[in-house]
């Protein structure tokens, strides 16, 4: 009768069980790894397997050093890399907002049947491999790619333009990949919005631009905030897009971390790079969680 014993155990402890099982998993595979990153970020690199000094030496003394962090903060290359990652992610976010807002507005204002289809077409690319969508742009932006061939055929240019391996190409890749993340939360707030308010403002003599900035924009703010954070946060650590579309000088932080780890095999420095990146993201991540908590409150 072991089965009924198991059942009894589950019935008596079900609350504890549904908490404990995922909790344990996350402690082992989510929290513990961060403790390890922290530990390795204060170690020294050595040529050994694994390539860093243990936390305690043979005599049991703690060996920890701030060297990796002081190096990161004083080395100009890293400062430039972090700054460039932040500015590129921020610019891509603004571009996504400029393209995504009118689209979300259009979708929210379409008739119900059309709206579902339009929404589906926004979500669909998200299900198709991210890597392959970035790859698609390689074929378009090549020197002998579709865009150049088309422009030459039109007679606009007679020499292929250099589109790939420049910051321009990274922006295209970022905006293309993250646009759905901007449109969906924007759509969700715009769809909830009461259109009569805009009409009322216009009836009372507000010009379209005044109505937009005084009525639509403030009401859409939660969606704007959520959308911007959902684009900005993943864009900062992006690895694939700068690697495939950007040039060799496109030093963005995701790629630097990857190379520091795999090419230079400097595990302590790579860990320190990860921690500084995480610190940069703390504020946006907290903002996002707060805006999502507010959203679930509104929905329920």
């Amino acid at each position: 009768m072991t089965e009924s014993a198991v059942k009894q155990f589950v019935n008596r402890n079900w609350q504890r069980l549904i908490v404990a099982v995922p909790y344990l998993w996350l402690l082992v595979f989510f929290l513990a790894p961060f403790a390890i990153i922290l530990k390795i970020s204060v170690a020294d690199p050595v040529i050994a397997q694994p390539p860093f000094t243990p936390a305690f030496d043979e005599t049991g003394r703690l060996q920890a050093t701030w060297d990796n962090f002081t190096f990161l903060l004083t080395d100009k290359l890293y400062a430039i890399t972090y700054l460039k990652s932040v500015t590129m992610a921020a610019s891509a976010t603004v571009l996504c907002l400029l393209i995504g807002f009118p689209m979300a507005y259009g979708i929210a204002r379409a008739s119900a049947g059309v709206r579902n289809l339009l929404l589906l077409l926004i979500i669909l690319p998200f299900w198709i491999s991210f890597l392959l969508r970035v790859y698609a742009w390689m074929g378009l932006m090549n020197n002998y790619g579709v865009i150049n061939n088309f422009l030459i055929w039109l007679g606009v240019i007679d020499q292929p333009m250099q589109l790939m391996y420049r910051d321009f190409a990274i922006y295209v890749g970022l905006v293309y990949s993250y646009l759905p993340f901007m449109i969906l939360p924007l759509y969700a707030t715009l769809e909830r919005m009461d259109l009569d308010l805009v009409d009322a403002a216009m009836d009372l003599g507000a010009s379209p631009s005044v109505a937009f900035f005084d009525v639509t924009w403030p009401l859409a703010r939660p969606g704007v905030v959520a959308g911007c954070l959902l684009v900005f946060i993943p864009a900062i650590g992006e690895y694939v897009i700068p690697y495939l579309l950007g040039g060799p000088e496109a030093l963005l932080i995701g790629r630097v971390l990857f190379d520091e780890f795999f090419v230079n095999r400097d595990w302590p420095l790579a860990s320190a790079v990860a921690i500084v990146l995480l610190l940069l993201l703390v504020v946006p991540i907290v903002l996002l969680q707060r805006s999502q908590a507010r959203d679930t409150e509104l929905a329920s």
């Binding site: 995922p22 790894p33 990153i37 946060i233 900062i236």
Partner: peptide
């Protein structure tokens, strides 16, 4: 618990990958 549940959604992939490998 709730912080650990939602954090992987926004964690940069390079950090998740590095921490798990370590």
């Amino acid at each position: 618990f709730s912080a650990m549940i939602t954090s992987p959604l926004v964690m940069p992939e390079v950090i998740t990958g590095l921490s798990l490998l370590l």
